[in-house]
């Protein structure tokens, strides 16, 4: 769907290079680990087009990402770099690699849970401060808990659905009492 039929060795090399750029907001992650660099198409000897997808439609980091990709590829000798923003298929937190999740946790951010199948975002109904996971309907499985990235406890509560950025929620651990960011499932 997103992978072009044939990727040349040059395109693969440039994709690797573009993917090695650190995320401007979460520099522990590379763009490849975040899953936002979709493809690199080479046009002739020294012109390439990079397909970049935003995490959120209004994510202000996209412009910095584009500038960084352009700089890295130009430094590698590519004369003409175009970064094209693609929306479909929509980015999902499931596109974050396992390595990316591990790095988020080490950085103190609870990684997004992987959803079993694609579908609507689970809307949690209940009091605003939500302690622990609950099933969303009769017979539905209880979602796995959001674990504290500091002590690993599963006993955490939601403080706010929106935190330092739109992609994160603010939670607190009820064991070690530390507040922490949770990368929301999208």
């Amino acid at each position: 769907m997103v992978t072009p039929a044939a990727t040349t060795p040059l395109e693969a090399e440039l994709l690797e290079l573009a993917g090695s750029v650190p995320d401007p907001e979460l520099p522990v992650l590379t763009l490849r680990e975040l899953g936002v660099v979709r493809a690199v198409h080479a046009h002739g000897a020294d012109a390439v087009e990079v397909e970049l997808t935003p995490t959120y439609t209004g994510c202000p980091a996209v412009e910095a990402m584009s500038a960084d990709i352009e700089r890295v590829l130009r430094e590698h000798g590519v004369r003409e770099v175009t970064v094209r923003r693609v929306l479909a298929p929509a980015w999902s937190t499931d596109d974050i690699t396992d390595e990316g999740r591990r790095k988020l946790r080490e950085f103190g951010i609870a990684p997004p849970r992987v959803r079993p199948a694609s579908g609507a975002v689970a809307v949690d109904l209940g009091p605003t401060r939500t302690r622990g996971p609950r099933a969303h309907g009769a017979g539905e499985p209880v979602p796995e808990p959001v674990r504290c990235p500091h002590c690993g406890s599963a006993d955490t509560e939601l403080l706010s659905r929106f935190s330092s950025t739109a992609c994160k929620a603010l939670r607190r651990c009820l064991d070690c009492r530390e507040p922490f960011d949770h990368f929301k499932e999208l």
Binding site: P54, Y56, L87, A88, A90, V121, V123, L186
Partner: peptide, 8 residues
Amino acid sequence: GKAVKEVA
């Protein structure tokens, strides 16, 4: 397709 997930 993107907006529907944000708006949720």
